[in-house]
Nucleic acid binder design. Structure first.
Length: 197
DNA sequence: GCAATGATTTACT
DNA sequence: GTAAATCATTGCC
């Protein structure tokens, strides 16, 4: 079942980040479906320095984060990697959840060919830049409505208990000062698909 | 208009 | 463990 707009427009971005664990991200690329179970997320908010929209700084790139939740925020990092975020909260509150790792589910052959691999292994989708390449997400998917028919997130019926969800410091944002120490990274305990331990 | 830089990955020492 | 790859976005001139 596709997640509703009500889910994405909740105010608590960290709660949404936790709820997204176990959900299934589905992407339609070249008329084929690819999907995977979300096992790792990070929360970002305009209230802290790790976020592109920190201090309500509005730019052409992050404009989509200032709109209503339920839209995709895709952008290029380090000139090489596409990162996929889910915009949350209501219009005017720029918050988003970064999807960092998935467990491959459907369309695995397509993922392998896009990644230039021949066998399914941990490195297929264990990282934010890797999973977008595996699913076929690129900048063309930016600002897409997650209630549309190209890219969406489903409830698979998986519900992790609090014991199965771990929180830790976010990765790769040392420049954010003390905000870099917020425990806003959420992972599924013991999942073999995490980007790092 | 131009220089600096990053929510990463990969390869090499 | 460290460093290079590589370019859109950003901020400043």
């Amino acid at each position: 079942m596709k997640l509703s707009r009500d889910f994405y427009t909740q105010k608590n971005v960290t709660a949404i980040a936790k709820d997204l664990l176990g959900k299934v991200i589905v992407c339609k690329a070249e008329a084929k479906l690819s999907s995977g179970i979300i096992v790792e997320t990070e929360a970002y908010s305009f209230k802290e320095r790790g976020c592109h929209a920190y201090n309500n700084k509005r730019t052409a790139r992050n404009e989509i984060m200032f709109g209503d939740g339920g839209f995709a925020y895709v952008y290029l990092c380090y000139g090489i990697h596409h990162l996929f975020n889910v915009v949350t909260n209501r219009s005017g509150c720029a918050e988003a959840v970064l999807v960092r790792a998935i467990e491959p589910l459907q369309g695995i052959e397509g993922m392998l060919s896009r990644r230039g691999m021949s066998k399914v292994k941990h490195s297929l989708s264990s990282g934010p830049g890797k999973l977008t390449q595996a699913l076929g997400i690129d900048i063309a998917y930016n600002a897409l409505d997650l209630l549309g028919n190209k890219l969406w997130i489903e409830d698979s019926g998986i519900n992790y208990t609090r014991k199965q969800i771990q929180s830790s410091e976010r990765i790769g944002i040392d420049y954010a000062g003390s905000d870099a120490r917020l425990k806003w990274r959420f992972t599924v305990k013991d999942s073999p698909w995490l980007s790092r331990v």
